[in-house]
Amino acid sequence: MTAGVVLLISGFQGKKPPQPSAAQAFSTSADPTGPAVHPLPRAEPVRLRIAAIGVNAPITRVGLDAAGALRTPPPGQPGFVGWYGDGTAPGSAGTAVATGHVDTPTGDPGVFYDLGTLTKGATIEVSRADRRTAVFAVRAVELYDRKKFPSKKVYGGSGRPELRLITCGGGYTRSTGYLSNVVVYATLTAVT
């Protein structure tokens, strides 16, 4: 995958979507791994829930565009989360990647409008087709300039089950759209 994702579109009625605070970025201390949770076998994700920001959304498979950038759910599905279906499944070993719109062409908030307000320790649940739920804890929330998007950091993995959620953020211009991306880093902590 290439740098960043270009999500949408309208600049939510002239407002800037919520941005992560500096306190939610990675700290300089060692990255805690928490208790060992065994990776799950591959299974399609079907629903993503983030109680802290009121997300309870169906998941649709997305791929890459001709330039190698991650696609998003179609604009007509602003309430859907897009999972990179050719990559890791949430809960399996590796880095699963999901994206969602921050807003819609009509200026309404999208599924990930409040993603920038997540805090470390928040829970993300992914229901899977195998009737298991992969439970992730947020480790960090960071904002990156789209032109300097750290692809290796975002899409790379540690070998443990991880999840990245990506949406637009930062400033907005009509000519280029959103100037940044919000990225949530989360690690599998439980399976129910």
Rank of each mutant, 00 (worst) to 15 (best):
M1W: 08
A3N: 10
V5D: 01
V5E: 02
L8P: 00
I9V: 06
K15M: 14
K15E: 14
Q19Y: 05
Q24H: 10
T28F: 13
S29C: 08
S29Y: 10
D31H: 13
T33V: 15
L40G: 05
A43R: 12
E44D: 15
P45Q: 08
R47M: 11
L48G: 05
R49D: 10
I50T: 09
A51D: 15
A51E: 15
A57M: 08
A57T: 10
T60W: 00
V62Q: 12
V62G: 07
G63W: 03
P74M: 03
P75T: 09
G76Y: 11
G76R: 13
Q77F: 02
P78S: 13
F80G: 00
G82L: 08
W83Y: 07
W83I: 09
Y84H: 09
D86K: 13
T95I: 04
A96R: 01
V97L: 15
A98F: 10
D103R: 14
D103S: 11
P105H: 07
L115H: 03
G116H: 05
T117P: 00
K120Y: 02
G121S: 04
A122P: 00
T123V: 15
T123S: 09
S127Q: 14
R128C: 03
R131L: 09
R132Q: 14
A134N: 02
V138Q: 01
V138K: 04
A140N: 05
D145W: 08
K147Y: 07
G156F: 07
G157H: 09
G157T: 08
G157D: 10
G157V: 00
G159F: 04
R160Y: 06
E162K: 01
C168S: 05
Y172G: 06
S175Q: 11
T176D: 07
N181C: 09
T187S: 08
L188I: 05
L188V: 07
T189V: 14
A190L: 01
A190G: 04
V191G: 06
T192M: 00
